[in-house]
């Protein structure tokens, strides 16, 4: 079945899209080294947004991978990671700011036209403001296609794992409630070069699922978040 919507986001750009509950967002790395810093909001109440700490601690994970459920501040399963070619998507090291982009030299629209280097913060805020949102609505993002490992040492030292994603890598997110998805394809802030890639966004019709769904059976916590999502409007 062909997607309901297909949109390629070029490298270093930002995008937002409203997605109906039940549909599937497929993100595809179109270049090696792509990164996709992604924010999620419940479309019916945008104060209720992705909460990475709650998502990680409820599922005892330091990374995002299938079949985890991405949870909101107020205990909703916002989206399920129904599949991915990668077993690790970073969620603990944030998105790039202007200071990260400026490491690679000055850049502006005036000098570089649409090739100018814009940070993830620049792009995410630009998209958030289109929806009446702003800096207060920034929260910890998921950096799809990027990996930042932690050591087992007392300090928990971070290690940037370069070359994690290759062109063709993908992840699918099933919207559990109506979602506002806001994303940036700017490089990960730990990427040592201004290397990033384009990301394909496809919205597909989803399929009904039951109690045997992998995200339902993953953990009791995941199942409870999905059940809460069904009770948003009673």
């Amino acid at each position: 079945m062909s997607p309901l919507l297909t949109h390629d986001v070029p490298s270093g750009a930002a995008y937002s899209v409203l997605v109906r509950a039940g549909r599937v967002v497929r993100l595809t790395a179109l270049d090696d080294g792509a990164n996709c810093s992604t924010l999620l909001f419940a479309a019916h109440d945008r104060v209720d947004r992705l909460n990475v700490p709650d998502t990680l601690k409820a599922q005892m994970s330091a990374r995002i991978c299938a079949p985890m459920v991405l949870m909101s501040d107020r205990g909703l399963g916002l989206a399920s990671v129904t599949g991915s070619s990668l077993d690790w998507h970073d969620a603990i090291s944030g998105h790039s700011l202007d200071a990260h982009a400026e490491r690679f030299g000055a850049s502006s629209y005036g000098s570089d036209r649409n090739e100018w280097r814009r940070s993830a913060r620049h792009g995410l805020l630009s998209e958030l403001r289109k929806h009446g949102l702003g800096p207060l609505d920034l929260h910890a993002c998921v950096n799809f296609f990027s990996k930042v490992a932690t050591s087992d040492s007392d300090a928990g030292t971070l290690t940037w794992v370069g070359g994690h994603a290759s062109a063709g890598d993908w992840v699918t997110l099933r919207a559990e409630v109506d979602l506002l998805v806001v994303l940036s394809t700017a490089p990960h802030p730990l990427e040592p070069s201004w290397r990033s890639g384009a990301v394909g966004v496809e919205i597909e019709t989803g399929s009904p699922y039951g109690r045997d769904d992998p995200s339902m059976t993953f953990r009791d916590e995941s199942a409870r978040a999905l059940l809460a999502a069904k009770e948003v409007f009673v």
Binding site: V52, P53, A62, A155, A225
Partner: peptide, 21 residues
């Protein structure tokens, strides 16, 4: 103390429901 967490966030009534019922 030695070290402190900043990944685990704060508990909430709603996240308690998810975690504990």
């Amino acid at each position: 103390c030695g070290r402190h967490d900043t990944v685990g966030g704060a508990c909430a009534q709603e996240s308690n429901v998810i975690r504990y019922g």
